[in-house]
């Protein structure tokens, strides 16, 4: 497994790809750490697939440079592609071949030791629940089975960096969950780096350590979903459980804190009550808690309900508009 320098698996600086006059990728600068799950988010045509193709050495950049596992995609494409696995949005598996034959074919392209191939294929077919289907032609597979076969193919040569382009497209909920768990296992358990191109913001929220949002080929935001929400000052809410008798004190204290709105006090009549607070303009939760504590409000629990990646994504779209 190729190791990158200084714990950076993928790096790009000013990476630009033009199709004629059209800028598919425009000055992409990112650093993806080894073992990280990094999301590339953006709508269709935002430049995600072009970015992956350029990082894999399939497309020539118009400007800028990139390194994947310390290798230059342009100068060292074949070596680089031995260290990466790619699952494209369309599974790209031949309908006339069986699942087993497909994997055996790619095992030879990746020059795997012949003796190790049957065991490796068997393990992957089992992992992706394709043991029975392995001997059947891919033409008989459902879309989800083809997608799983493409994922198995991407993992066949044990690559250090994985590019997954919409890996759960067409999968049912069970297969989606298995795939997501598999992605987490690959990074947390095996130290692989995953670059996940997706429209599925819930999936990105669940899986990604950090995300980059692309718009018209440009990165318009990079960071953890939390950082993005904070930087964008996206509203989020927090549930604070306090002594019921301190409600008035809490209201007075919060009224002095700009950007905090009491949404829904649950005055059910018990000893404690749940106070839902809407935090605007990136007001941090600790500041709210400190303010309440200073006002002698008895606090039993604080449950932040942070902005989702979806909130962040649409906030970014509004900013761009």
């Amino acid at each position: 497994m190729a190791q990158s320098r200084d714990g950076v698996a993928v790096e790009a600086q000013g990476l630009t790809v033009h199709y004629g006059q059209f800028k598919a990728v425009d000055g992409l600068s990112i650093q993806i750490r080894t073992g990280e799950i990094f999301g590339l988010l953006g709508h269709n045509g935002a430049g995600k697939t072009t970015a992956v193709r350029t990082l894999a050495g399939l497309l020539r950049p118009t400007a800028g440079w990139a390194r994947v596992n310390g290798l230059d995609p342009q100068e060292q494409g074949p070596q680089l592609r031995k260290t990466i696995g790619v699952s494209t949005e369309s599974p790209a598996v031949d309908e006339r071949m069986t699942g087993e034959a497909t994997l055996a074919f790619f095992a030879e392209l990746y020059d795997l030791p012949p003796a190790a191939i049957p065991e490796r294929i068997g393990r992957l077919l089992e992992r992706f629940d394709l043991v029975e289907a392995g001997k059947r032609r891919v033409g008989e597979y459902s879309k989800g089975m083809r997608q799983r076969l493409a994922l198995a193919r991407a993992l066949l040569h044990d690559p250090a960096v994985l590019f997954f382009d919409e890996p759960t497209s067409g999968l049912d909920p069970v297969a989606t969950r298995q795939t997501n768990e598999g992605i987490i296992e690959m990074t947390r358990g095996q130290g692989k780096t995953v670059i996940l191109c997706t429209h599925n913001l819930t999936q990105a929220q669940q899986l990604c350590d950090r995300v980059a949002v692309l718009e018209h080929g440009r990165v318009i935001a990079v960071g953890t979903p939390h950082e993005l929400a904070r930087d964008l000052r996206v509203d989020w809410s927090v549930i604070v459980e306090i002594d019921a008798q301190d409600l008035a004190a809490a209201r007075r204290a919060l009224a002095q804190l700009p950007g905090v709105e009491v949404v829904d006090p649950d005055t059910g009549g018990g000893m404690t009550l749940r106070l839902e607070l809407l935090l605007r303009d990136g007001v941090p939760v600790p500041r709210v808690v400190a303010h309440l504590a200073a006002a002698q409000v008895g606090i039993h629990a604080v449950v932040p309900d942070e902005a989702t990646l979806e909130d962040v994504y649409f906030a970014l779209q509004e900013v761009q508009a």
């Binding site: 592609r81 031949d94 790619f106």
Partner: peptide, 10 residues
């Protein structure tokens, strides 16, 4: 649509 997988190979 199987060419892309070949192009991604080493």
């Amino acid at each position: 649509k199987t060419l892309e997988a070949l192009l991604y190979s080493p």
